[in-house]
Simulated assay, not measured.
Amino acid sequence: MTPPQKAAPASQEAPRLNRQLCFAMYSASRAATAAYRPMLDELGLTYPQYLVMLVLWEEEPRSVRELGEELGLDSGTLSPLLKRLEALGFVERRRSAADERRVEVHLTGAGAALSARSTGIPQRLADAAGLSPAELDQLRETLGRLAAALHTPR
């Protein structure tokens, strides 16, 4: 018969999935994306396409490089997104008159009009989350600080 073993100190316990920040963020991200899906289906957009449109609704035209930097996407990911948005009639890609090497993304009339149809989406997501506006603001601020800290080279 083997003697009973003492429990390991908390600092030496095996990591638990439900205690991991990475899993909480992953799970919340998947849940938020799933909650957005039916709302974005009404607009004919995927979640990544919606993010591109949000940037363009704030300010356009934007260069492909600016969009990539703003969204944290490389050109291999962004180019197919833009092609699909162009095929849907929401954006146009054009060479800059000032610099032929620069490709700018412009909203079409249909793309600009889509903004008005999307205005209720943030509130619908907030309602689905069941969090107060203050809680959502605090969460967004905390996640922004976390992302900035993790993007900073050490």
Rank of each mutant, 00 (worst) to 15 (best):
M1W: 01
P3A: 08
A7N: 05
A8K: 12
P9T: 01
A10Y: 03
A10D: 04
A10R: 03
Q12H: 00
E13V: 02
L17E: 09
L17A: 14
R19P: 06
Q20A: 12
C22I: 15
F23S: 14
F23P: 04
F23G: 02
M25W: 09
Y26R: 15
S27F: 08
A28L: 09
R30M: 14
A31W: 06
A32C: 15
R37D: 15
R37A: 15
R37Q: 15
P38L: 04
M39T: 00
L40Q: 09
L43P: 14
L45I: 12
Q49L: 11
M53A: 01
V55C: 05
L56W: 04
L56P: 12
L56I: 12
W57P: 12
W57M: 03
E59D: 09
E59G: 09
E60C: 14
P61K: 09
P61F: 06
S63I: 07
E69Y: 02
E69Q: 10
E69N: 11
E70K: 15
E70T: 15
E70M: 15
E70N: 12
L71M: 08
L71P: 05
G72K: 07
D74I: 11
S75H: 10
G76H: 10
L78D: 14
L78E: 13
S79G: 09
S79P: 04
P80F: 12
P80K: 11
P80Q: 10
L81D: 03
L81W: 03
L81C: 08
L82H: 01
K83M: 13
R84Q: 08
A87T: 07
A87K: 13
G89K: 06
V91S: 01
E92D: 08
R93D: 05
A97L: 13
A97W: 13
A97M: 12
A98K: 13
D99G: 07
E100C: 02
R101E: 03
E104P: 03
E104G: 02
V105W: 03
V105I: 07
L107I: 05
T108R: 04
A110R: 04
A110L: 03
A112T: 01
S115C: 13
R117I: 02
R117N: 09
T119S: 03
T119E: 07
T119P: 00
G120E: 10
I121W: 04
P122F: 02
Q123T: 03
L125T: 15
D127F: 04
D127V: 14
A129R: 10
G130V: 07
E135G: 08
E135I: 00
L139F: 01
R140Q: 11
R140C: 07
E141N: 08
E141K: 04
E141M: 03
T142C: 11
L143A: 11
G144A: 10
R145C: 14
R145W: 13
L146Q: 07
A149M: 09
H151E: 08
T152Y: 05
R154E: 13
